[in-house]
């Protein structure tokens, strides 16, 4: 069962003696439902990774970094988890995120999606969905609303969208919330 897009899985392992980009490794690419599950069942669950590690699933040709031309003007819907949620929620939310991506859950706005990242951090893990144009309000909001619904977050929970350009200059603010 062919996917709409080919997706690349990346793994980041923090080693401060090396440059950031040297810690980023392409694991594999998948373009069928069957290959996606073969990949998923062969890698560690996100909750089993050590702190400082990331997984990223991005469309083929887009590197999981702000600097990529397809990310440069974009941003991310960010889900921040509390420390205790690593064992109760992280793996389920990350899998739902992956299924939204490969299943093209955002209808026509799926073309705005670049990928998703899970950051494993001592302070609290994070999951984000990256889109390519932070100024494209209609797409960003549609993706945010559908994503929140797929994660099963309560209507009281608020998730925010941040432009990478703001994050890069540390002037972090929510450009949109749903």
């Amino acid at each position: 069962h062919q996917l709409q897009n080919r997706w690349a899985l990346w793994f980041f392992k923090n080693d401060s003696s090396r440059a950031w980009q040297d810690n980023l490794h392409l694991v594999t690419k998948v373009d069928t439902v069957e290959d996606f599950w073969a990949m998923y069942s062969h890698i560690q669950l996100a909750s089993k990774l050590s702190s400082g590690c990331d997984y990223a699933l991005f469309k083929d040709g887009i590197r999981p970094m702000w600097e990529d031309s397809r990310n440069k003007w974009g941003g991310r819907w960010l889900v921040s988890l509390a420390k205790h949620q690593r064992h109760s929620k992280l793996d389920r939310l990350w899998l739902e995120t992956l299924l939204c991506l490969i299943g093209e859950s955002f209808e026509d706005h799926s073309r705005e999606v670049c990928g998703a990242v899970v950051n494993i951090r001592t302070k609290g893990d994070k999951i984000s969905v990256w889109t390519q144009e932070a100024e494209n309000q209609a797409s960003v909001l549609h993706i945010g609303r559908v994503y929140k619904e797929h994660l099963g977050l309560s209507t009281k929970a608020i998730i925010g969208y941040q432009a990478h350009a703001d994050t890069a200059t540390k002037s972090i603010r929510n450009k949109f919330v749903v």
């Binding site: 069962h1 439902v33 599950w37 073969a38 069942s41 299943g103 093209e104």
Partner: peptide
């Protein structure tokens, strides 16, 4: 057409043995 799959469809493949 665009290949869209909902989560239930995708999950059905999770534990399916690979075809050889």
């Amino acid at each position: 057409g665009k290949k869209q799959y909902d989560r239930e469809f995708l999950l059905d493949f999770q534990f399916m043995p690979a075809c050889i």
